[in-house]
Design a protein around this nucleic acid. Structure first.
Length: 180
DNA sequence: ACGATGATGAAC
DNA sequence: TTCATCATCGTA
């Protein structure tokens, strides 16, 4: 049974969504091609108080979508060349999100895709999808195939050394099963 | 270990 | 308007 995750799935605290997304399948329809990636690594960003989050600046042009209802995509550009894919979580005016860091590309070329910028490259995602709903309508959605999760590793988030105590919090979640 | 490469937010 | 910084990656 394959179920599309509904908006409600995302309208919870980001750390719960980040764990819940492990083993779920991102489906991307681009032209007549379909790409599927099973999520195996995520990071949670917890709101304006989280000094590692873009939300720490308050509402800005870039991060405005994080302040909306959970269940939309937040895609942004970093380091002059990379797009990063996030799912907005929680409810309106609570700017939290989950970054998709790694996954398993399914199909003939099954392999592990490590790193958030590689995920967006494979799925042909850029800033045009930011603010759109996580549903078939936007051509990018997430399915639950009932994959069983037995062990999740927690570790500090990557690339946020500047964030003081927030850089040490265990908000990075990695699926520990053998997956390939 | 480091450079590529450009948007972003803050300071002036 | 200028400046340092950045939720990274490929090459070394």
């Amino acid at each position: 049974m394959k179920k599309i995750l509904p908006p409600k799935f995302f309208q919870k605290p980001a750390s719960a969504v980040a764990r819940g997304l492990l083993g779920k399948i991102i489906v991307r329809k681009s032209g007549r091609k379909i790409y599927k990636i099973m999520i195996i690594e995520t990071e949670a960003y917890l709101g304006e108080k989280d000094l590692a989050s873009h939300a720490r600046f308050g509402r800005t042009k870039r991060n405005a979508v994080m302040f909306g209802e959970g269940g939309c995509w937040y895609v942004y550009f970093v380091y002059g060349m990379h797009w990063l894919l996030n799912a907005v979580t929680e409810n309106k005016n609570y700017p939290s999100a989950v970054l998709v860091r790694s996954g398993v590309l399914l199909g003939k070329n099954r392999r592990i895709i490590n790193g958030p910028a590689r995920i967006t490259k494979i799925l042909k995602i850029n800033g045009r999808i930011t603010g759109k709903p996580i549903s078939k309508k936007s051509g990018l959605w997430i399915e639950d195939w009932g994959v069983k999760i037995s062990r999740i590793k927690k570790s500090p988030r990557i690339g946020v050394e500047y964030a003081g105590v927030w850089s040490k919090k265990l908000l990075r979640f990695t699926l520990q099963e053998r997956v390939i």
